[in-house]
Design a protein around this nucleic acid. Sequence first.
DNA 1: TTTTCTATTTTCACTTCACTAAAACAATTA
DNA 2: TAATTGTTTTAGTGAAGTGAAAATAGAAAA
Lengths: 220, 220
Amino acid sequence: MSFSSTEENYIKAIFHLSEDGDENISTNDIARSVNAKAASVTDMLKKLKEKKLITYEKYQGVRLTKEGERIAKSIIRKHRLWEVFLVEKLDYSWDKIHDIAEQLEHVGSQEMIDKLDKFLGYPKLDPHGDPIPDASLNIKSQKQTLLTELSIGDKGKVVGVKDSSAKFLQYLDTVNIHLGSDIEVKDVFEFDGSVVIQIDRKPKSTISKLAAQNIFCSVK
Amino acid sequence: MSFSSTEENYIKAIFHLSEDGDENISTNDIARSVNAKAASVTDMLKKLKEKKLITYEKYQGVRLTKEGERIAKSIIRKHRLWEVFLVEKLDYSWDKIHDIAEQLEHVGSQEMIDKLDKFLGYPKLDPHGDPIPDASLNIKSQKQTLLTELSIGDKGKVVGVKDSSAKFLQYLDTVNIHLGSDIEVKDVFEFDGSVVIQIDRKPKSTISKLAAQNIFCSVK
DNA sequence: TTTTCTATTTTCACTTCACTAAAACAATTA
DNA sequence: TAATTGTTTTAGTGAAGTGAAAATAGAAAA
């Protein structure tokens, strides 16, 4: 069976909303993430239920079925592979690729995506550090530690971002934080939670708590 | 201004139908090439006229405006660049790429296509030998000679195909005719127009008139 | 515990886009 | 001029969306 771009967008949204926490997903939350009104979402939920991609009872919220999850992962696989392509081959910066990948993710057969995967050298992570499902849709999510969880003196590497909005990514660029950057926590200010860090042995700098809450690190 | 995939498909179809001959294009011809009924075409023609992409008077057929032509060329540029990508980077064969490129051609900004162009090394021709418009949408159509126009003894190279349907391309593959193949006309049978050729100094073979009418050659 | 309130969700009536079948209407040709 | 072919109009469909009104669940108040 095959699905419209719109259906795919709903499925992907539900999947992402399910990532943290395992409560049922609400109509309003979905509406927010697909940029539509609740009324439209209700309509679509009926359709997706009909197609057995979600379980859904009126007023009770929604959750993906096994099959729905499979579809979601295959869309995410496409999305992230295209993102790698845009950055590695077309030389895009990581803050510009989301919208284009959003379009590309609805294009192409399974076969073509597997060929793309091969061409890219079977990358494990996308340009934001998010894991790419493999051809059998296995996705291994490395345990993620937020920068705010590190203590003074801890050293590590930047391995991902939680917020991958263009504004945040551009901010990271200007303060020289990139995927793979060495990072050391020099100080944490109690009163506002801001963090003094050293990136790649450059001069120390300070970032806000909000920023720190959106950076994933490995610790060594 | 931006256009829906459907609108783009109509514009592209009109452009291609205008390629040989400069009469106005008929509703039925368009219907055939976009796989829709004439009634749908009439609807769309009104819309495209409204947007000043075509000139159109009831019952008088249609023709692209300068702007319409510009759009058409930019779609063709996208289409052909993606085709090059599919063949050169993803290792597709030339008979499998049309449908995928058909989807990809509606994706991506001008900027991204220019980056793709750069990444591919500014190719001049697509995998079927058709010219790719450059970034300013200039398209130089090399004079095309059909294999049927060659005489016995003429030598040349295969530079393109007129029919680029999967069936024809697969046929060419099996008889070992590829873009760039050396070709020599050994004989022509008057009674049915079939042509005896030698490809890349392999053993002689015979192809039908219909086949020969769909192969473009350079002559030396 | 029952009632009331409020925020969320659903239903309903209607829009736009692309499409179709059938009827009506031009244009062409015999 | 009549017949045929091609084109447009009309009326209606399905997908995706909207605003407004009605329905409902869950929390707060009685």
